Simulated assay, not measured.
Amino acid sequence: MQPVADIRQVAVLGATGSIGASALDVIARHPRRLRASVLAAGGNVDALLELCISHRPDHAVIADPAAYPALRDGLRAAGLDTQAHTGDQALEALVAGTGCDTVVAAIVGAAGLGSTLAAAHAGKRLLLANKESLVLAGELVIAAARASGAEIVPVDSEHSAVFQCLRSCQAEGVSRIMLTASGGPFRGWDRTRLAQVTPAQAVAHPKWSMGPKISVDSATLMNKGLEVIEAHHLFGLPAGRIGVLVHPQSLVHALVEYVDGSTLAQLGLPDMRTALAVGLGWPERIDSGVGGLDLLAQGRLEFEAPDLAAFPCLRLAQEAMAAGGTAPAVLNAANEEAVSAFLQGRMGFLGIPALVEDALAALPAAPAGSLEALLAADADARRFARQRIDTMHPAGIPAA
């Protein structure tokens, strides 16, 4: 039996989301080596209370201050010793404190940046599922991790695959990496069909179980664009050495090509628990609850180039990465606003890339040497996007 002192204390941020649920499933499978010590959620206090009853963490954090009394009283009524907290400052203090040594960063969007940075500065093992943190402030996050000795283990399936493949060779032997994309629910569609896409169609991903925002990003291929930027920061490769292949079966998650002509691929069923188990157990392998891959049962594996004419978000992300500075922050903020408007029925599916492209053109890249500069670029892009959305017809065309 593993000594109690060796149990890894894990903070799960975004605990009520799909990645949080997968992380908690893996943690529950290993009570002698893993424990959820901090759980954090946005506003779903009932779901957070249920998780607290199941996992009995030391601390629970609700982002919405209006939900704090319900969390506090609910914990008390359940007879739990779990302490209730609210707000970003409380979450960042807990992440940086002694109550956890591992942080699963799964808060969606730019809202996850503060807690991600706090974990990086504090030298924690950071299981990074919040790609927007690296898109918005990748240089700052990586620099903080290097200075503190924090260990970043990516848990996006594609970046986890690269992480695993790279452990077989020195990084300088890498020629390029290839991330795979399922192609989303609209693979093969042209722009005429895409113009009629509804939010319900866009969130129905054919392979992965994800939240609405990430599902829409997958449908537009923006998710893959953000992952390309993330890979650039995680693995230190320039844009020209990071490629994307559409692979509809979602069994090959990434490939790493080496200078000697060898290519290593990581394969597995499309289940986030695999990547989370890698992060929680590394360098050991632990049970994730995911079955093995039967290639004979799966049939053929297909690969194709992404259609950048129908899905320009991938191109826009690549251009923002090449521009550098504040451009990725503008890209991310404009996309978040556009996706939110689409999900609310305020603009069409094709309006998402159109708005992002307009924001990048209107707000040229500037130096991004500080968090303040990046947050200012984020705010400017959101302000621009909201103003444009207010002048749009639902189809995404500016009003006359």
Rank of each mutant, 00 (worst) to 15 (best):
A147Q: 14
L75I: 01
L134K: 14
G279I: 12
A373Y: 07
R29P: 04
L237G: 02
G291Y: 08
E284V: 09
A90W: 11
H55K: 03
M178K: 04
L226H: 14
S157Q: 07
A47C: 00
D287K: 06
Q249W: 10
E230T: 12
L126N: 10
S148C: 02
I62T: 05
E337C: 12
A329C: 09
L134H: 12
F349G: 07
S209T: 14
E319Y: 03
A120L: 07
L375T: 06
V10F: 00
Q2T: 15
A195T: 06
G97C: 08
G20K: 10
G184I: 11
S18M: 12
A171P: 04
G281S: 04
V61P: 05
A254E: 02
R388Q: 11
R315F: 00
G351V: 09
S340T: 15
V244W: 10
V10G: 00
T102Q: 06
S288K: 05
G114W: 01
L221R: 10
L166W: 01
V10Y: 00
R35G: 02
F163L: 11
A329Y: 03
I177R: 11
A309L: 11
T98I: 08
D390W: 07
R315I: 08
I27A: 04
L80D: 13
V197D: 08
G369S: 08
V290D: 03
A200V: 12
C313F: 03
L126V: 10
S250H: 04
P185Y: 08
V12M: 00
A23P: 07
G112D: 05
E336I: 12
L237N: 04
R76I: 05
M321Y: 10
A41L: 00
S218K: 13
A110D: 02
E336D: 13
V155N: 07
D390A: 15
T263V: 15
V45Y: 01
G112H: 07
H121P: 04
A36K: 06
V290E: 02
L363V: 05
L128N: 13
G324I: 11
N130Q: 08
W208L: 12
L117M: 11
T98F: 05
A329E: 11
V228I: 11
E372W: 02
L295E: 08
L251M: 12
G348M: 09
L374C: 13
A78N: 13
V259P: 01
F303S: 14
F342W: 02
R167F: 02
L374V: 10
S218F: 14
G43H: 14
L280R: 13
L136E: 09
L375H: 15
R167W: 06
V104Y: 00
L276P: 00
I177D: 13
H232L: 13
H59Y: 06
A254R: 01
H232P: 02
A21E: 14
P398M: 06
G188P: 11
E284Q: 15
V95E: 05
G369L: 07
W189F: 09
R388E: 11
L314Q: 09
P199Y: 06
A265I: 14
Y68A: 15
A106L: 04
G74C: 04
T116A: 00
K213F: 03
L71I: 08
A41V: 00
A379M: 12
E337T: 10
G211H: 08
A11W: 01
P306E: 09
Q387S: 11
F163W: 12
H59P: 01
A254V: 05
A150D: 09
P206D: 10
D260M: 04
L269T: 15
A60M: 03
C313W: 03
A239P: 02
Q2R: 15
E139Y: 00
V4G: 08
